[in-house]
């Protein structure tokens, strides 16, 4: 009698091999800048095959768009003389709050998918290497390219 054979498990695909704990993209947003951390979140979401990919991308858009709109409003208010220049660092916290709230939202959504991924045997890469390399090598080159102007304020 032939024994019934179970199929072997395939190796994880190339995209799955770069999955990391969403804590690392979150730290990337704080330590390197939204341009880096939010892009990393998007890649990680695709690698995870996240069922909430669209919502995560919408939140990433909200983080950047929301910060841009808040900054534009602040500058318009400053030009119109509605706010004092000394109040700008305080008001900037509103823009930062919008960015951070949306980023935390992406983190929480992705953390649930990541939990499922690891629970069912998925192996995550340690993101600390990417973070350190980006801090030491990428940031010094990219920051001068995008600093200055509204784009720099939003992305850095």
């Amino acid at each position: 009698m032939a024994t019934y054979q179970l199929p072997d498990e395939p190796r994880p695909n190339a995209l799955q091999a770069i999955v990391t704990d969403p804590m690392w993209p979150f730290l990337g947003t704080l330590l390197i800048g939204p341009w880096f951390g939010l892009a990393w979140f998007a890649v990680n979401s695709a690698a995870l095959g996240s069922p909430t990919l669209k919502r995560e991308l919408a939140l990433i858009g909200l983080a950047l768009g929301g910060k841009a709109v808040a900054l534009l409003t602040l500058f318009a208010a400053l030009e119109a003389g509605w706010v004092d220049k000394g109040a700008m660092p305080y008001l900037y916290l509103i823009a930062l709050g919008i960015l951070l709230s949306a980023t935390y939202g992406v983190y929480l959504l992705q953390a649930r998918t990541f939990e499922l991924f690891t629970h069912f045997g998925g192996q995550a890469k340690n993101g600390v290497v990417v973070l350190l390399v980006a801090m030491a090598v990428v940031r010094p080159y990219v920051t001068p390219l995008i600093s200055g102007g509204l784009l720099g304020l939003v992305l850095l």
Binding site: G86, P89, Y90, L93, L96, G97, L100, S101, Y104, G105, L108
Partner: peptide, 24 residues
């Protein structure tokens, strides 16, 4: 999740606000 986000962002902004105020 909303409560968690509000708490974490609130803590961060609170610290930044206090730090700015103390400096000023």
């Amino acid at each position: 999740g909303t409560r968690t986000i509000l708490l974490l962002v609130g803590m961060f902004l609170g610290v930044r606000l206090v730090s700015l105020l103390l400096g000023d």
